[in-house]
Amino acid sequence: MSNFNIEDHPHKRLNPLTNDWILVSPHRSKRPWQGQVEKTIIDERPKYDPSCYLCAGNERAGGHKNPDYKGTFVFTNDFSALLTNTPEGGMDEGSLFQAKSESGICKVICFSENHSLTIPEMEVEDIRKVIDVWCEQFEELGGNELINYVQIFENKGAIMGCSNPHPHGQIWSSSSVPVEPAKESVSQKAYFEKNGATLLGDYLKAELDKKERLLAQNEHFVALVPYWAVWPFETMIISKRPVQNVLQLTEEEKTAFADMYKQLTVKYDNLFETSFAYSAGLHQAPTDGKDYPEWHLHMHFYPPLLRSATVKKFMVGYEMLATPQRDITAEQAAKRLRDLSDIHYKKQ
C-alpha cells in the first residue's frame, strides 16, 4: 500500500532482542471507550504493620524472625521456587517427554523498613542502597559454581501477583539460563558478531536521535518506550555505556541508575494517580564464567494498567493463541508518559 501510515494502519513490529513479533492496531485506539472506568483507590499504609511478615522485627511465614533492620534486608526465600539440594536427574522418553532437574537459590530483598513506601516514593540515595544490594547479591550468587544466571526482579501491585505490599523485590538464581534471557543472548550475539557493537547500544543511539519514544535521561541511563512494546505502557531503562552486568557500573552510574528508576516510576504513579502496578527486572549476562561482550545491561518494565487505576490490559484470545497485540502505539504511550510531571502526585 503506497500510502501506508504506521500511525493509522495495522502492522507488525519486530522485537530484535527476542525475534518475536507484535501486532499493532493504531486505528482501534480511535474508537470511543465504553468499557469499565473506576476511580482511583487510595492506598494509605502505615510505616509499620504488625501483621506484615516483611516488616522489621516481625515473624515471617516460614517461622523465622526478621531483625530490626533499617534500610535494606536480604534473606533466602522461605518458600523458594528453586532449591540448592535438588538431585541431578530428569526424564527422557523420546522427544515428546523430557524433563531436567533445576537447582538454584531464591532470595527476597526488602527495599526499606518503611512499610508505606514504594520505589517512586523513596529518595534516590535510598534506592541507590537497593542497587548496591543487587550488586552484592549478583556477585555472591553469580560466583557460586551452581549458578549460571541471576534474575533480579520486582513485582509491584496485587494485580501483578505481589502477595505483600511491603517494598521488596526478589532474586531467583538458577543453574540454567531462563527462556527470555536465553533468547536475548542469541539475538545480541548475532548482532554483535555482525556489527561489532551491542544491539542495544546501536538501538539507543537511534532512539536518542529520533526522540519520539524517550521518556527521561540522565548522564548514564535512558528510560524509553521500546519500539516493539507489548504492554500499553511498557518501558525499558538502558545504560548508555554497554556494560554486561551491574558489577561493571561505576559509583556514579549506580546513583544515576537509582535516579532513573525513581524518575520512571514517578511517571507511572502520576499516569492514573495510583500506586502503579508492574513487573520489572534486570537482564544481564549469564554468570557461567564465559565472556559476553554482546550483552548490554537493561531493565524491563511490564505494567498491565490500560485506562485507569484498575482497568488492566488482558492477554487473551488472539494474543494467547496467535500474536501479542496492542492498540495504543509505542509513540502515543511515550508521549503520555513523557508529558507527566516529575513530581509525585502525592506531593503536588
Rank of each mutant, 00 (worst) to 15 (best):
K346Y: 06
E7V: 01
A322E: 04
F97S: 07
E145Y: 07
G62D: 13
T72Y: 14
K205W: 01
K240F: 11
R31V: 03
F79G: 02
G142A: 10
F73Q: 08
I171T: 07
F79V: 03
R45M: 12
S175R: 11
L249M: 13
G89H: 00
L117M: 09
V246R: 15
N114E: 00
P67K: 03
S2Y: 04
P167L: 03
K211M: 11
I109D: 04
N77D: 11
C55N: 05
P167I: 14
L215R: 03
E123F: 05
N148R: 15
R326Q: 11
Y268Q: 02
G62E: 07
K262S: 04
K346V: 04
M1T: 11
P242F: 12
A229I: 03
A190F: 07
K189F: 02
V124M: 08
K65L: 15
D78S: 13
R31A: 01
W295Y: 14
K12I: 03
I171M: 13
Q188P: 01
S95G: 06
K205V: 09
L271W: 02
K107H: 00
V130D: 01
P67C: 05
L271M: 14
I147M: 02
E139S: 14
E145S: 15
F4D: 02
D20Q: 15
Q36V: 04
Q263E: 08
Y48D: 07
Q332T: 14
E136V: 00
D342V: 13
G281Y: 02
K129M: 01
H9F: 07
F276A: 12
A277K: 02
Q263M: 09
M91C: 06
H296A: 14
W228P: 01
Y268A: 05
I109E: 00
I131Q: 07
L96P: 04
D92Q: 12
S174G: 06
Q325Y: 06
E273H: 12
N245I: 14
I105R: 15
F276S: 10
V124P: 01
E44L: 13
E193M: 08
P50A: 10
E253R: 12
A99I: 02
K335C: 03
K39P: 00
K39L: 15
K290P: 00
D269P: 00
H11Q: 12
L224W: 10
N270C: 15
G289M: 10
N195P: 02
W231C: 14
D209A: 06
V225L: 07
S116Q: 10
V266E: 01
G104M: 06
A285E: 09
M315N: 04
H298W: 12
K129Q: 05
I105F: 12
T265V: 07
N164H: 06
E113I: 07
Y227F: 15
V150G: 09
K183N: 03
I328T: 14
H283L: 12
K313M: 15
N77I: 13
P286R: 11
E252C: 03
W295S: 13
S103T: 00
T323N: 11
L215K: 00
F79R: 11
R326M: 06
R241M: 04
K211Q: 09
K313W: 10
F97P: 00
K194W: 10
G281N: 05
Y268V: 08
H166T: 11
L23R: 10
L14D: 02
P226M: 02
G317V: 08
P178V: 01
A56M: 01
K346R: 15
Y268I: 05
A61G: 09
